[in-house]
Each structure stands twice: as C-alpha cells, then as structure tokens.
Simulated scan of single mutants.
Amino acid sequence: MALIIVLVGLWYLSLFFQTFFQHRYAAHGAFTMNKFWERVFFLFTYLAQGSSYMSPRAYAIMHRMHHAYTDTDKDPHSPSYSKNIFSMMWRTRNIYSAIFKGKITIEERFTKNIPDWPLFDKWAHSTFSRLLWAAGYTLLFIFLTPTLWLLLLLPVVMSMGAFHGAIINWFAHKYGYINFRLKNTSQNLISVDLLMLGEAYHNNHHKQPSSINFGKRWHEIDPVFHVIRFLAWCRIIKL
C-alpha cells in the first residue's frame, strides 16, 4: 500500500509541474511570475520529475513547434508520422535532445519570453543526476515493495514525464471527442479528466492554447485551473 501511495504521488506531482510550469507557463505564457518564483518552480519541477526532468526551455520550444506544425512532418510528436507510440516517443526524444543541445536551428518565434536557467539545466539534465534519481527510486522500491514484481514499474517511474506526454500526444490525436472543429486531429480524450490534470482536453487546448482553463464544458474539470487561480490570489503569479 505504501508503494502505491508513493507511485500515485509521483504521478501527480510530476504531471502537475509539467502542465503548470513547463506547459502553461513556459510554452504558452498563460500567466507570468517574477524571476524568484520562476527559479523556485524550476527547483520544484526538478524535484517532482527526478530522472525524467525536462528543461522548461527545451520543452517550451518543442511544444510551440507542435502547435505551429500540428499533424505535419515538422510536428515533433505526431501519430501520423510514427508507426506506434514507442517510435513516436523515440522521435520526440531525439528532437527534444537536439533542441536542448543546440544541434538544430530554432526560429526566433519559438524562443520568445521562455524561461531559461542554463546552469541549473546543465546539472538537472545531466546523466549523473538521472542516475542518482534512478538509484534513489530503485532503493525506494526495494524498501517498500511487497513483491518483486512491482520492480517492473521502475522504468515507468524513471521516464514518467515521457509517458505523460505520450498519452496525450498519441491517444488524444486518435481517440475522443471534439468541442471545436480545427484543422488538426486534436481531440478531448475523456470527458472527465482525473488522471491527466486537464491535459486530456487536448482539442480545447488547441483551440485556445494560452487559456489557463483547459476545460470548456461543465463536466470538463481542470483542477490545475483552480490551483492557478489560487496562486494568483496569493500573488505568486499574475494572470
């Protein structure tokens, strides 16, 4: 039971900082914050995502490319150009890595007003950092697991951020329903999003990328929207 609680906690913490900081803030500028709080959320994102940490800068650039080139051969993660979800994940990983390492030319429109902390990202993105997190996860599993079979979940935990992205980038462009007719294949994956903290309302998001609320209909509950409103009330961020 203790391990299940830990796994659920890791899932939601990692996902929250992905959707709040890397996606809504870094990629879309849905709200603003001062440099102090930006650095605080850099740290929180790293602590929550561990070995699957993604640079907010590289993530933002790649995600902006996804919106600009949705469903074309320039889309970093389109099901239309991958045979299966794993080949799409690998293609996405290669494009992300090339952006992070500066191996491809990035248009200026994709780099405007994105958060950047090069020194921190150099450590957080390093192989040594990822190995330390992997060792920590392994020890935690060994200490808490009631059965060794649960060790099979370790690869998912170590690459959790990639799985979050793959669920939406693959399935939400193949299955679901639409609220808005758009010139792309984005769909709302499920009507009540309990597992993805609003990210499953992908059709809504493609209609209004910078909206702080991904839910548009009464039953489309986006819990992160309410957290954003609370943080704005606390004057940590500005809407």
Results as ranks from 00 to 15, higher is better:
L150I: 11
N34M: 03
G161N: 10
T45M: 11
M196G: 08
R57Q: 09
F86H: 10
H173W: 05
R109P: 07
S80H: 13
V6E: 13
F44D: 07
L140S: 06
T92E: 12
A98R: 15
M196Y: 12
G198I: 11
M1F: 12
A162C: 07
Y175G: 02
P155S: 05
H125I: 13
E220D: 03
P115N: 00
H226V: 09
W37Y: 15
F16K: 00
H28E: 13
I5L: 12
M62V: 09
I221G: 02
T145H: 05
A48V: 13
I61T: 03
P209I: 08
W170M: 12
N204F: 04
N179V: 01
R181T: 11
S80D: 14
N179W: 00
S52F: 06
M65C: 02
R235C: 12
F86S: 02
S14W: 06
F42A: 09
A232P: 02
A98V: 05
N179H: 06
F163Q: 07
Y96E: 02
S55F: 03
S97L: 14
G9A: 01
T145A: 14
A60Q: 08
I5S: 07
T111R: 11
I178P: 04
E199S: 14
L148S: 15
S82M: 08
L132M: 14
G215M: 05
C234L: 14
M33G: 00
H66I: 01
S126I: 13
S191T: 12
F110T: 01
W218V: 15
L43K: 10
S186Q: 07
L132A: 11
I4Q: 14
H202T: 12
H205V: 00
T72C: 05
L131K: 15
F21G: 02
R235Q: 14
K101E: 13
G9P: 00
H173D: 00
F16W: 01
G165N: 12
K35L: 01
I114F: 05
N213L: 00
I99C: 02
P146W: 14
F128G: 12
I106V: 09
N213K: 04
A135T: 06
L153Y: 09
M89T: 04
L140W: 03
G176R: 09
K35H: 04
M1W: 13
C234N: 05
L239T: 10
N113S: 12
L189A: 08
R24A: 08
M33A: 00
A30N: 10
I5E: 07
P155M: 07
R64D: 06
K216A: 01
I190W: 08
I95P: 00
M89R: 05
R235K: 14
A58L: 13
H164K: 03
G215A: 01
